[in-house]
Amino acid sequence: AEDTGVRVELAEEDDGKKTSIALRLWVEDQKKLKGKYKDSGAIEFTFDLNKEVPEAVAQEMVDSGFFLETDMKIVGKSIRDRVALIKWRRERTISRGK
């Protein structure tokens, strides 16, 4: 995935079954953000792989004051990339099992 300066990782091991997973997000390179970023630390949250939209979580982070509106897209994309990777890994595991 593209280096957005925002890192998103699993906050727990993926058992491949749960649809709601814990993710942790933090800014690795604040120079890649457009707005001035107040270093708040790593933000942990749960994300439903089937129901939720990464951009909506990014919007909530903006509303909570973690990021500026101008960086919402980059945060949303970072979450989206990680979620896509998790889904891809799961599909690969399932197809291997067949």
């Binding site: 890192r7 933090w26 690795e28 390179d29 604040q30 120079k31 708040s40 630390g41 790593a42 933000i43 942990e44 949250f45 749960t46 979580v57 909530e60 982070m61 509303d63 909570s64 973690f66």
Partner: peptide, 27 residues
Amino acid sequence: STTTHVVTSAGRRFIVSPVPESRLKEQ
């Protein structure tokens, strides 16, 4: 503890904690 909890108006909970230094890129 330096961990804080933020609950958004949509009911989502964010748990904020310091990033381990080993996980930060050199600036």
